[in-house]
Simulated scan of single mutants.
Amino acid sequence: MQKLTNKEEEIMHILWMLKKAFVKDVLAEIKEDKPHYNTLSTIIRNLEEKGYVGYQAYGKTHQYFPIVTKEAYKERFMNTAIENYFNSSYKNVVSFFAKEEKISVEDLKEIIALIENKK
């Protein structure tokens, strides 16, 4: 699974939400920094070449759909981030968020309860 650019990832989020879409449908969902139609079409074709997107042809137009699920991408993205930035340690991840005050004691207790219930 190749790494996506920020814009490609943004487009994938739209395709995951829409399930199937023509380029004009994706363009309508972009709120800021709208690319030109042809630029967006090129980005989507790049996603197809990378194996993230498939399409159904209707004459000269294509309806695109995700091949890679959001869950599969999320798993790959998170595993890579944890490996590269936290030395493959989930403890380091949780510690980071605790130090940054991005996670509360209540959240940590819920996480511990989830772990204990899986045993």
Rank of each mutant, 00 (worst) to 15 (best):
E9D: 11
E9C: 04
E9P: 03
E9M: 07
E10N: 13
E10D: 12
H13A: 08
L15I: 06
W16E: 08
M17K: 15
L18V: 08
L18P: 02
L18Y: 00
K20D: 04
K20V: 11
F22S: 14
V23D: 05
K24Q: 06
K24E: 07
D25V: 11
V26T: 02
L27R: 10
A28P: 00
E29L: 00
E29R: 12
K31C: 00
K31Q: 14
K34I: 00
H36N: 11
L40M: 00
L40A: 05
L40D: 01
S41V: 02
T42F: 09
T42P: 07
T42C: 08
I43C: 13
I43T: 08
I44S: 07
L47F: 03
L47T: 01
E48M: 07
K50M: 02
K50V: 02
G51I: 04
Y52N: 04
Y52F: 15
V53I: 07
G54V: 02
Y55A: 02
A57P: 02
Y64M: 04
P66F: 07
P66V: 12
I67W: 06
V68F: 11
V68S: 06
V68R: 08
V68Y: 09
T69I: 04
A72I: 04
K74F: 05
R76V: 08
F77W: 12
F77C: 03
F77R: 14
N79H: 13
N79Y: 12
N79A: 11
T80D: 15
A81Q: 10
I82C: 07
I82W: 01
E83R: 15
E83S: 15
E83M: 10
N84S: 12
Y85S: 11
F86G: 00
F86H: 07
S88D: 04
S89T: 05
S89P: 06
Y90G: 13
Y90C: 03
Y90H: 11
K91R: 12
N92L: 08
V93D: 10
V94A: 06
S95L: 10
F96V: 01
F96W: 12
F97P: 02
A98S: 13
K99Q: 15
E100G: 04
E101V: 01
